[in-house]
Nucleic acid binder design. Structure first.
Length: 413
RNA sequence: GCGUCUGUCGUCAAGCGGUUAAGACCUCGGAUUGUGGUUCCGAUAUGCAUGGGUUCGAAUCCCAUCAGACGCCCCA
């Protein structure tokens, strides 16, 4: 056992006994997102590195220190750390701006980030997400948030907190950033190391620092005044107000969190996050927002867009474990040639069927059947001669013998 | 990249310087060559993450490495 090969750090096998949970989430995603007119898209897992440095943002941790990047044929290639950039690339490359707006897309698949694993965080992890292109109206924001909430409800997750905020547009946001920096600057040297970094890189992130001394400084009135000031320009403010109106009318419960700042550079105006109290410190199951500047930044026409991503591992850890399904039938017989034929017949009716390929004893076969199947179909010498089969319901123990052609209608799927 | 804790069979574990390395589950075989899920027997770690060290003696103590869990940063 010493030299067996193991999965890489931060990666996991999804074993057969857990696959049904994944399928459950994927099927719900397919069903709910389709019901809003979203179409699935599958983009490559590897992309040119530039896509992410330009799309996700040079200053983000994701691009700076978390990407799996390698050189191949003089090109720098990267395993996707998220999928918005890839979907935007595809939208532009395939001329989807010529389709009638909105263009609604959803995806699922693995993402890769070189990080230290912890609860709810893997190096290879999986997301389901959606992107909607071409609509600047807050109705789009409302539909996307509503759909996220309904998707989570369909998984049986009802007690999650939805938080929303508006970051404003590039104009009003940069004004706000300057004001904030001006207010904090006098105290800069007293802040923790992380905060000092954030001050330059992303001043909005300063707000959620957990260090007590930093919090004390941020609590000062002159900083609080800036924080609570309404910095949104008229248009952004209207957009945000209208979104809240729709959410209220739809009965979506949310809290406004002025400190909510998504970590990726591309977000504008609406940002939102959906959190659970049962996940440990990585408590967001969903994060998303509007990114009106990204399509043009990646070389497409000016196109407003909004989307979200959810972490599948986090979702699955919150939903109740489901028992894997049993086989419909296990055929018990010591006549393999006849059993092959019977098994194929049953399979053609849509049943899941297995039988013993090792010619084990009758009792052993029945024991196996009771563990893996709902029915044991017994095909012995007597049955073969009379052109019959015996069907044993393994839960109730009752057994009947029927003519062979009547077998399918005596099995409940 | 930093911090804390943890690594004994496929799984869950006892052991805490001298044991033949408990036990349970799973798996396999038998009691039981056409009737299972109950029961009863039996099999399955020359091995304690890996590599060094301390010791007469190490799964037990020390160091390093690797891996896992959780937290920080950041994010889904």
């Amino acid at each position: 056992m010493a030299n067996i090969i193991k999965t890489l750090k931060g990666t996991k096998d999804i074993l057969p006994q857990d696959v049904n949970m994944w399928q459950f989430v994927e099927q719900k995603a397919q069903k709910i997102f389709s019901s809003y007119g979203f179409k699935e898209i599958r983009t490559p897992i590897i992309e040119i590195t530039e896509l992410f440095s330009r799309g996700v943002g040079d200053t983000t941790d994701i691009v700076n220190k978390e990407m799996y990047t390698f050189e191949k044929s003089d090109r720098s290639i990267t395993l996707r750390p998220e999928n918005t950039a890839g979907v935007v690339r595809s939208y532009i490359e395939n001329g989807m701006s010529r389709l009638s707006a909105p263009v609604k897309l959803w995806y699922k698949g693995p993402m890769f980030r070189y990080e230290r694993p912890q609860a709810g965080r893997q190096r290879q992890f999986h997301q389901v997400g959606v992107e909607m292109f071409g609509l600047k109206q807050p109705t789009a924001d409302a539909e996307v948030i509503l759909m996220a909430v309904n998707f989570l409800k369909s998984l049986g997750l009802n007690d999650l907190d939805v938080e929303i905020n508006s970051l404003g547009c590039p104009n009003c946001r940069s004004e706000f950033k300057e004001k904030l920096k001006k207010a904090i600057k006098p105290y800069l040297k007293d802040l923790c190391e992380d905060c000092q970094n954030r001050f330059e890189k992303n001043p909005l992130r300063l707000l959620d620092c957990k260090v007590e001394d930093c919090q004390k400084i941020f609590a000062k009135p002159e900083i609080q005044d800036v924080l609570t000031s309404d910095f949104l320009c008229e248009e952004c403010s209207e957009h945000y107000t209208e979104l809240k109106l729709y959410l209220d009318r739809m009965g979506v419960k949310y809290t406004e969190n002025k400190l909510l700042v998504r970590g990726l550079d591309y977000y504008t105006r609406t940002v939102f996050e959906i959190k659970s109290n049962n996940l440990g410190s990585q408590n967001a199951v969903c994060g998303g927002g509007r990114y009106d500047g990204l399509v043009s930044q990646l070389g497409g026409d000016e196109t407003p867009a909004i989307g979200f991503a959810m972490g599948m591992e986090r979702l699955i850890s919150l939903i109740e474990k489901k028992e894997p399904k049993k086989l419909d039938c296990y055929i018990v017989s010591n006549f393999p040639a006849d059993t092959f034929i019977l098994a194929e017949e049953l399979r053609s009716f849509g049943f899941n069927v297995e039988f013993d390929l090792a010619n084990k004893k009758f009792a052993k076969q029945l024991e196996k059947a009771s563990k893996v199947a709902k029915y044991a179909v017994i095909l012995g010498e007597d049955e073969i001669l009379k052109h019959e089969v015996s069907i044993k319901n393994l839960e109730t123990g009752t057994q009947i013998t029927v003519r062979r052609e009547d077998l399918p209608k005596n099995i409940k799927q």
